[in-house]
Simulated assay, not measured.
Amino acid sequence: MKPRHETEEVLPLADFAARASEVIRGLREHRRPVLITQSGEPAAVLLSPEEFDRLTQRARFLEAVDEGLADAHAGRMTSDAALGKLLDDELGKLES
C-alpha cells in the first residue's frame, strides 16, 4: 500500500461507525481523505464526491495521454491536412 500522507485522517472502523455522519459532513469541510482502519490495518479510504470526481477525471486524462503516446510511438498518426480532409468529407466544408 502507498504510504499515508500526513493530511489524511486515520480512523478505526469502530470510531467511524460511531461518528459516520460527522465524518461524512467533515469530508467537504476539511477537503482531505479519511483512512479507515480495521484491526490496525488500512481497510478503506473515504473521499468527498468532488475529490473522487477530480481523481477520476485525472485518471481518464492520463489514460488518454498514454493512449496518444502509444499511438504516436506505433506510427498511428494523421497529418493536419489529412485530418482536415477527412473531417471535410465526413462533415462537409464549413462556410467562411
Rank of each mutant, 00 (worst) to 15 (best):
V10Y: 04
L35Q: 03
L94K: 12
S39F: 14
D88W: 02
D89S: 10
R76Q: 15
Q57L: 15
P33H: 06
K85P: 00
T7S: 12
A20K: 15
L83E: 11
R32H: 09
D66E: 14
G84I: 09
A72S: 08
A64N: 05
M77G: 08
S39W: 09
A43V: 02
A74V: 02
L83M: 15
P12K: 04
F61Q: 08
R25K: 13
I24T: 09
A82N: 10
D53H: 07
Q38T: 03
L87P: 01
D80L: 15
V23D: 00
A43S: 12
A72G: 02
S79C: 08
I36L: 12
R32L: 03
E22R: 13
L55N: 11
L35R: 12
P12R: 03
A81N: 01
V65L: 15
S79P: 01
S39P: 00
S79K: 09
V45L: 13
A18K: 12
L46Q: 06
L86P: 00
L86A: 15
A59H: 09
F52N: 05
F61T: 09
E67G: 13
E95F: 00
R25N: 10
L94W: 09
A59K: 10
F61N: 01
D80R: 13
E8A: 13
R25Q: 08
D89V: 09
E41I: 13
V45C: 08
E95A: 11
V65K: 12
E8G: 02
L94A: 11
L11V: 14
E8S: 10
S79F: 07
M77E: 05
E50Y: 02
L47V: 05
K93R: 12
A44L: 13
E41C: 12
